[in-house]
Design a protein around this nucleic acid. Sequence first.
DNA 1: AGGGCGGTGACGGATTCTGTCAGCAGGCTT
DNA 2: AAGCCTGCTGACAGAATCCGTCACCGCCCT
Lengths: 231, 231
Amino acid sequence: MSRADRLLRLMQVLRAHRTAISGETLARELGVSRRTLYRDIALLRDRGARLEGAAGLGYVLKPDFTLPPLNFTEEEVEALALGGRWVMTQGDRRLAEAAREARAKIRAVLPPARRDLLESSGLSIPGGPTAPGNDEVMDLVRQALRKRHKLRITYRDSSGTSTERIIWPFLMGYFKETRVVAAWCEARQDYRHFRADRIIEAGVLEQTYPRPREKLEREWRLREGIPTPED
Amino acid sequence: MSRADRLLRLMQVLRAHRTAISGETLARELGVSRRTLYRDIALLRDRGARLEGAAGLGYVLKPDFTLPPLNFTEEEVEALALGGRWVMTQGDRRLAEAAREARAKIRAVLPPARRDLLESSGLSIPGGPTAPGNDEVMDLVRQALRKRHKLRITYRDSSGTSTERIIWPFLMGYFKETRVVAAWCEARQDYRHFRADRIIEAGVLEQTYPRPREKLEREWRLREGIPTPED
DNA sequence: AGGGCGGTGACGGATTCTGTCAGCAGGCTT
DNA sequence: AAGCCTGCTGACAGAATCCGTCACCGCCCT
């Protein structure tokens, strides 16, 4: 049996069962080793499945390991539609793709009456020129951000000289015309800003950086005198 | 992207689309060859998906045996977070509020591990000056848009003279600096644009306008030479 | 304290996958 | 009727993935 096949079967088994199941049992049922089962579980989780495992118990199956129905008001649907559309035009390719997928998922669990509103809200983001920035670089920056990993970048500054640095990225600002990464620069031992379109190349390092992202952001805001958005 | 991953996405895409969709399109969307797509389709059918394909038409997923989608992936959460934040800074007050509430609802169905990502994704919309536009007016425009109602507006044009008109709004464009309402103007019997910040006053009429919003939009795009976003 | 169980890393051989090429059939357009 | 698009299947070989094994960590329950 191919892996893809097995995963679909696994989803069905999980959905059917309501009580806790041990990984051992699942593995036997699917005819694979325990190690492989853990790999499958990890993939499902990565794709969004909401299922929790606890040592000594087995897998505690949240009944809603799929997306439960969401009851948004018309105005909330409008907000989601507009926000999604903005990301589709302004985000890097992968993020734009994610926005589309998210919309599709929301659409699937929306009450039928609101579905059309999601696709055709009448609110539009005119397709102007998208802000410059290498798609691949932006994707890597987001990864580093998410996992709090250090990032090695090759950067060409405004005078045109290239340098290589290791930075701790903690924020990416989506300005009107540019994308700017705010980070702690190891070489300078200080906060620095990097325009995404001037990052020639980037690589996510294995190492995480020692301070929480929020701490860095707070300190940076303080120093730069940038107020925290009330949100 | 692994095959297993792709299959989950394929189900997602099929579910989202309600009209027939060709294998060619699907293959492009998933980034694989047509041959591979046929293989994937075969596997899904093997697993019990009621998926009908016809030469010259495309594929249609029968709606009866569709699993609900999995929960959001990390990347999708990022997209939702960023989009929501943009609406909070750029929408009118009520829409911003709706974005916040939508976020709260999404947060409630998220696996605990992904909740933080929604609030603190590290992606930020810098709080610049929000585009001008009367909150109340924008709200009314959105209402009219949603319900396809006629709108009575008092408009001051670029030369400073005020006029009162009845319009059929079918689109609101969120430009970088301005919000623009595209509408059919009853007085002029033609399409007109109105900057939201120049609409002094507005009132939603009881009467709906006779043509579907999509029709108006399509005709308008044709006349103005504005391409439809592929989306 | 110990066993059961979830979770992770590394590794190398086995398996699967995928694009290409080729061909057939059926519907739609011209 | 011809031509095109599209669904569908077979074969092949290189590329990519997968999987079991082993080893280890930490938590939970008894």
